[in-house]
């Protein structure tokens, strides 16, 4: 096919084309192409995912039924206390929490690029998902919406090297930034040595970054060491959510987009 031309010319042509894509990365045409291709590929990926997850869903369903039965009994027993708690909660004015609306979505697959930590979900602009909406599971924060298609979205996970989340030690109120530490681990940067932190402390979102609401659980401190520069701590954080096994996720719709 390329017999009469110099061997490297086709390579040069594809390289220039690839570089053209690199330089037009943020263009609206590329974004439209990305959204449409993701929507299309998810049509194929969804059944694969459903089949592969069937045994896990079955087991989880059984476990959740058992938990539901146990919880129902507990609720019945704690009826009076529950009413009291509700009253106190109202008194404490939990406006912050009630102003959020959750959108349910299913994780369909992982990012095809091994270096990038993201998942593809089956909710998009038709479900009112917006870029930068926070994504959570019942056990903690998962990440944020990075790109929105019509019926699909890409979620940038906490484990992605390019995502930083404003975090806080729940007990001491020390603020820092949560980053990926590789291998499904996180680290909390920017905490001074004067902070009073213990292994096992909860790390929550501080809400300072503007993307994640305040008070969502990120993980737990599992190692504290002195940074070589001697005035900051190196804090390893174990994510509370199992970021490698995501199935059903919740997207937090902010108050201004909830209506």
């Amino acid at each position: 096919m390329f017999g009469k031309i110099k061997p490297y010319v086709p390579w040069l042509a594809t390289s220039l084309l690839a570089m053209g894509f690199i330089f037009s990365n943020q263009s609206p045409q590329i974004n439209t192409l990305r959204q449409n291709l993701t929507d299309l590929i998810l049509i194929g990926a969804h059944p694969v995912n459903s089949i592969l997850n069937a045994p896990r869903v079955w087991n989880e369903n059984t476990r959740m039924r058992e938990q539901l039965a146990v919880m129902s009994m507990k609720i019945a027993r704690l009826g009076d206390s529950g009413t009291e708690a509700l009253r106190l909660r109202r008194m404490m004015n939990f406006r912050e929490r009630s102003s959020f609306k959750l959108i349910t979505a299913e994780a369909i697959g992982m990012n095809p690029d091994p270096g990038i930590r993201s998942v593809l979900i089956n909710a998009g602009s038709v479900d009112s998902v917006r870029v930068n909406d926070a994504v959570i599971v019942p056990t903690g924060v998962v990440g944020r919406i990075y790109r929105v298609g019509r019926r699909s979205s890409a979620v940038q996970l906490l484990l992605d090297p390019n995502l930083g989340v404003a975090g806080r030690i729940a007990n001491s109120y020390d603020d820092g930034i949560i980053h990926s530490a590789g291998m499904r681990k996180l680290r909390l940067d920017g905490i001074p040595t004067s902070a009073t932190i213990e292994v096992g402390d909860s790390v929550i979102t501080s809400g300072l970054g503007g993307v994640f609401p305040q008070g969502l659980l990120i993980g737990y401190v599992n190692k504290i060491s002195l940074n070589p520069n001697r005035w900051l701590l190196d804090i390893a954080v174990e994510p509370s959510a199992d970021l490698g096994r995501l199935m059903e996720l919740f997207i937090i719709q902010k108050a201004d987009s909830a209506d």
């Binding site: 894509f21 095809p112 992605d160």
Partner: peptide, 30 residues
């Protein structure tokens, strides 16, 4: 040449679906 074309196509598909910079994987693979 087959590797070049397959690499470009596979890479650009990965690029478009992923949240990375479009074209990087296409350039690397091809």
């Amino acid at each position: 040449y087959a590797g070049l074309i397959a690499g470009f196509m596979a890479g650009i598909a990965q690029d478009l679906i992923s949240i990375g910079i479009t074209g990087v994987l296409a350039l690397a693979k091809s």
